[in-house]
Design a protein around this nucleic acid. Structure first.
Length: 420
RNA sequence: GUGGCUGUAGUUCAGGGGCAGAACGCCUGACUGUGGCUCAGGAGGUCGAGGGUUCAAAUCCCUUCAGCCACCCCA
């Protein structure tokens, strides 16, 4: 083996998987177009500060996982760990607020996080994300959630579970956090180590703990739904009603807390238990203050992202295959080296007529060339020998029926006219 | 970042101190210019990498890298 190997947590997408990735990405763009989304492409790296502001200084993503570096001009840069910050930055910088609201954008790109790799978790990974900016309407929340779920359904991904919650806004969440903190502090002794650390730093995250003892205590914890303000409550109620209108099944999970600081109000997550411990296939929510925080207009927004490799994993687990290897229409074989240039020329002629053509290279006997044609699953073979060159009629062999006839190039092309 | 399992041919894997193996795949041949099936032959390995113990290491020990699993985190 060469000393050069993949960097940990990165992947080579070999043709089959590369085509699957491409297929999912392309499908998403056209599917989302039906909902009014347009593609946006932003840079792979940004100023580190951009992400620190949005994702939150205290989060693991910023503290431990971001790929940060200085460029030769001394700029502090970071490979993007998520997509929303860049889209919002681009929205403000290019005055996209001038467009009719909500402005709907989709992105399809790699993200980078320095995490311990696992199935469905890579250091460079793909996300398909969508952002709808400029409307607080709960109907938009419902449309976005339905889009997210419906896209996965369109790909025939099964056994999905949608969980939703409202995280409150800046007016009511602090009050809830206070109450929660008080409750947690009183029971601190009952929690595991990580949980008791979180009580001070980020009490909402205690809900993420999977330890049974912690969950037991948490079942008695104050629920955010009892503390969110009237406006948020009303908003969330409407989201639920609209989701029902759309026949979207959901589970309300009062413990669902998204990992980024910028989320407000509606939060949701789609999970697929067959994926193992990395079971979140999509996640998102509202971020009503982020645009203003970045110095843009005061516009609420909602968005989400898919983990594309996780969609691919679901495909593989369900044995969904999307592609068969492309079969050559014609395999051009030559008898002797002398006819190789004719074979090359004829291949080009056939391709000009939009046929899929492969030919034999290297010193191979006719026999081994046909063997190759068979392996490539070619439908037909065109044999180019001395005789054929002289007469202008080539041996055209149907590789399935093994029948062969002598045809001119034009006649060969006509053979494929019906199916093209 | 923590703990566990795994790493042998292109692939899937056997072998667990004494000659590096199987299946599939790949290449060649079975007389003239014809594939699939069959038969015969062949190529292909620093046993993930580095060090140590031993007369002798794929095998035991240490380190390291990578993959997977759980934690963590999240998509």
């Amino acid at each position: 083996m060469s000393k050069y190997t993949r960097v940990r947590g990165t992947q080579d997408f070999l043709p089959e998987r590369a085509e699957l990735l491409h297929f999912i990405n392309e499908s998403a763009v056209s599917f989302f177009e039906n909902y009014g989304y347009r593609l946006i492409i932003t840079p792979t790296f940004e100023n580190s500060e951009l992400f620190k502001r949005s994702v939150g200084e205290s989060t693991d993503i910023i503290q431990k996982e971001m790929y940060e570096f200085k460029d030769k001009g001394g700029r502090d840069l970071a490979l993007r760990p998520e997509g929303t910050a860049s889209v919002v930055r681009a929205y403000i910088e290019n005055n996209l607020g001038e467009l009719p609201k909500p402005v709907k954008l989709i992105y399809v790109s790699q993200m980078f996080r320095y995490e311990r790799p696992q199935a469905g978790r890579y250091r460079e990974f793909w996300q398909i994300g969508a952002e709808a900016i400029g409307s607080p309407d709960p109907a938009l929340d419902a449309e976005v959630i339905e889009l997210c779920l419906n896209f996965l359904n369109s790909l025939a991904v099964k056994d999905l579970k949608l969980i939703i919650n409202s995280m409150g806004c800046r007016n009511c969440r602090p009050g809830y956090i206070k109450v929660l903190k008080k409750f947690l502090s009183e029971k601190e002794a009952l929690f595991c180590k990580t949980c008791s650390q979180r009580i001070e730093q980020n009490p909402l995250r205690v809900f993420d703990c999977k330890q049974k003892e912690c969950q037991k205590v948490l079942s008695e914890a104050p629920k955010i739904s009892d503390y969110i303000c009237e406006e948020d409550k009303e908003h969330f109620e409407k989201v639920k009603i609209y989701l029902k209108t759309l026949n979207v099944e959901f589970v309300i999970d009062p413990h669902l807390v998204r990992g980024f600081d910028y989320y407000t109000r509606t939060a949701f997550e789609i999970t697929l238990s067959s994926l193992g411990s990395q079971d979140a296939i999509a996640g998102g929510g509202r971020y009503d203050y982020l645009i203003k925080d970045y110095g843009g207009p005061d516009e609420p927004a909602i968005g989400f992202a898919f983990g594309t490799e996780r969609i691919m994993l679901a495909f593989e687990n369900q044995n969904i295959t999307v592609f068969t290897e492309p079969e050559p229409d014609v395999f051009v074989a030559w008898v002797e080296e002398a006819q190789k240039s004719d074979a090359l020329r004829i291949s080009a002629m056939l391709r000009e007529k939009h046929l899929r053509v492969s030919m034999a290279f290297d010193s191979r006997k006719l026999k081994s060339q046909l063997k190759l044609a068979d392996k490539l699953n070619a439908n037909t073979a065109l044999i180019v020998g001395e005789e054929e060159i002289k007469s202008g009629k080539y041996t055209f062999k149907d590789l399935e029926s093994a029948k062969q006839e002598k045809l001119t190039i034009e006649e060969v092309v006509n053979k494929f006219k019906d199916n093209k």
